[in-house]
């Protein structure tokens, strides 16, 4: 059918309205797919329908911490939140901060700390995941309160923003651990 309409165009015959509608629809679908393919720009997906959603937990989260839009929390790579200059500043901060997280000396692997940066640049809803060097999930006892404290003491972040609009977003920092010592920070 599509080819028939194209043929009509080529023959310079009267083009039916449905043909134009069909073309507009095709262009719209193609344009939508192009935008959908881009992951590094903000998109509204209901936050609760996303991988890695962190719901508010009254037992561990600050009730005074507010997000601008609970249903539209972006990922860091979509809106680029920043702590001062970025990764360099994060590393510099943790070099001087209290990082005595009481990580067992027997542990080598990765400690991932994921949190929400709200549209004002404050941090909360901190969650932890640890994997060993083979990326197997492991439960280790660490001083999560000190980790949270050191994160909160960082102060304000520049919230994620695109085209002048600020967003709440998720961000994570990976602490590479070798025999209980933090050997690298990837943030």
């Amino acid at each position: 059918m599509y080819n028939d309409y194209l043929f009509l165009f080529m023959k310079n015959q009267k083009v039916p309205t449905s043909c134009l509608a069909y073309l507009v629809f095709t262009i719209y679908i193609l344009a939508s797919l192009t935008v959908m393919g881009q992951n590094t720009v903000p998109h509204q997906i209901n936050t609760k329908e996303k991988v890695g959603w962190i719901p508010f937990d009254p037992l561990q989260d600050d009730s005074g911490f507010e997000v601008c839009d609970e249903y539209n929390i972006q990922e860091y790579y979509q809106v680029n939140p920043k702590y001062l200059e970025g990764s360099k500043s994060i590393k510099a901060y943790f070099k001087t901060a209290n990082t005595n997280y009481r990580i067992p000396s027997s542990f080598s692997g990765f400690l991932t700390v994921r949190f929400v940066i709200n549209c004002q640049g404050s941090i909360d809803r901190v969650r932890f995941k640890t994997v060993d060097q083979s990326y197997q999930s492991v439960e280790i006892k660490i001083d999560t309160e000190t980790v949270k404290k050191s994160l909160k003491n960082m102060g304000k972040w520049t919230p994620g923003a695109v085209d002048g609009v600020t967003y709440d977003c998720y961000k994570h920092i990976v602490f590479k651990v070798t025999n209980g010592e933090i050997s690298d920070i990837i943030g």
Binding site: V51, G52, E75, Y77, F110, T112, R114, K129, V131, Y135, Q136, S137, Y170, H172, V174
Partner: peptide
Amino acid sequence: ISHNKRGDFSTGMALLE
């Protein structure tokens, strides 16, 4: 992909494995 990008490496790397 989405697990690794969000720092959930146990799930992401198991799938990648």
